[in-house]
Design a protein around this nucleic acid. Structure first.
Lengths: 123, 123
DNA sequence: ACTCATACTTACATTTTTGTTCGTTGAATA
DNA sequence: TATTCAACGAACAAAAATGTAAGTATGAGT
């Protein structure tokens, strides 16, 4: 996330796949470790940085910062900073970000089905 | 993919998130670099290892092997080996793997929309 | 005996992601 | 004056994913 070498084969491959295939492009937008958690809590509405931090178990400030920044660059969330002290910053899903929600709901259904099958056969 | 330390904080976090949230569980199943490409080509039906290799640009045999193995463990594809010489192995999407396809189609739509918006504003 | 093809495996190197710790800002509060 | 708060940023370390290059087993064909 921090450093991406735009000369690496890995980078080339990723770029090509994204260009060729919008599914891959889409999945790459949501494949950070904490991005879906953030989406989950922002479903309800705006939240401040610290509120998110407190709601998401085990996330560090650094990861929250990084993931929010990526989501902002990717237009999934909007950031509003208020010139107060202490600082207040609110995050909210953008319209296109909200457009993901129904798809995520379906993924959730599929995931549950898959999980129940795996548990059933893992005995 | 190769090595996963089951003592790391990273591993703990991932596991907790997957247990809590089926969306995250689901996305983790499809978040390998080449997994969606493989899905794409297996939509049509069975394919042999070499056929996949030739269809997917730039993939190496190692990555194809790894991703197929993961997909097999995750019950997304089934593997059938024929006792011939030279060896013949066929891969096919499982029923639950096929269940992903409509969701991926929606992701594709969303991705295209997102991409068109980004291109429009990036000028 | 020797090569050929398929479907891998292994060892190693590089790149990317995630985690840990500490520092910053600037007004309010003790 | 020192401390506290929110929302980060920077430096470094660890882990995970991906890439590169080489090798393996099996027989069948020449």
């Amino acid at each position: 996330m921090s450093k991406i070498k735009d000369t690496s084969v890995n980078f080339e491959n990723k770029k090509n796949l994204e260009e060729t295939c919008a599914e891959i492009y889409a999945v790459n937008l949501i494949s950070g470790q904490w991005i879906l958690s953030i989406c989950y809590y922002l479903k309800q509405g705006k939240l401040r940085f610290t509120e998110l931090k407190n709601k998401i178990p085990n996330i560090t400030e650094r990861m929250l910062t990084l993931q929010l920044k990526k989501m902002e660059e990717d237009k999934l969330v909007s950031r509003t900073a208020y010139a107060e002290v202490p600082l207040r910053v609110e995050y909210e899903l953008t319209p296109i970000g909200k457009g993901l929600l129904p798809i995520l709901a379906q993924l959730e259904q599929w995931g549950k089905l898959h999980k129940s099958m795996s548990e059933g056969s893992a005995t």
